[in-house]
């Protein structure tokens, strides 16, 4: 993470922690690696996200939500001067049944950024099984440029 300033790292940590309510808090995401090139996030197993009564298989929807969240983080890290962003569209392929109680790992990056749009892709697998991808996603985000950053809004309670 050498290409990210200490200030940005602190902002990321604060932003993540400021989400006192909401899905990201409930998913209990942990940032494993972060750089302008790519981000890697871990989601611990949570029985709420399962599709079967035995709670041994995740619902695809939570993988979609995970990809969407981590794309947002990848954009925040990779792009300067963004006040807000919104997912424009999202495509997810479910490559295997998500049958495991292991933690889930998501690796995502922004592969192209323009003034108004960011393009993302990412992969999902169970911890220790990187060779058996369970989902892959691509998305585009609409960026709103501005001085009031997403970070300021979240940590100081201002709406932009």
């Amino acid at each position: 993470m050498s290409d990210i300033t200490q200030k940005k790292m602190e902002q990321i940590a604060q932003m993540w922690n400021a989400r006192g309510k909401g899905l990201i808090t409930h998913m209990a995401l942990e940032i494993e690696e972060v750089s302008t090139e790519s981000v890697r996030v871990r989601m611990p197993f949570n029985p709420d996200f399962c599709v079967d009564a035995e709670q041994s298989m995740l619902h695809g929807g939570i993988l979609t939500a995970l990809l969407d969240s981590v794309f947002g983080l990848a954009n925040f890290v990779a792009i300067e001067g963004v006040s807000t962003m919104a997912t424009l569209d999202l495509r997810v392929d479910y490559l295997r049944p998500a049958r495991s109680r292991a933690d889930v790992i998501v690796q995502a990056h922004c592969f192209r950024k323009t003034r108004h749009i960011a393009f993302n892709s990412g992969s999902v697998w169970f911890a220790g099984h990187e060779d058996a991808e369970i989902a892959r996603g691509t998305a585009s985000f609409a960026l709103t440029r501005g001085e009031t950053s997403l970070f300021d809004a979240m940590t100081k309670g201002k709406t932009s």
Partner: peptide
């Protein structure tokens, strides 16, 4: 969350 909307639609 966009992922919740997508999940509800999938359901």
């Amino acid at each position: 969350h966009g992922g919740i909307i997508a999940s509800f639609m999938e359901a």
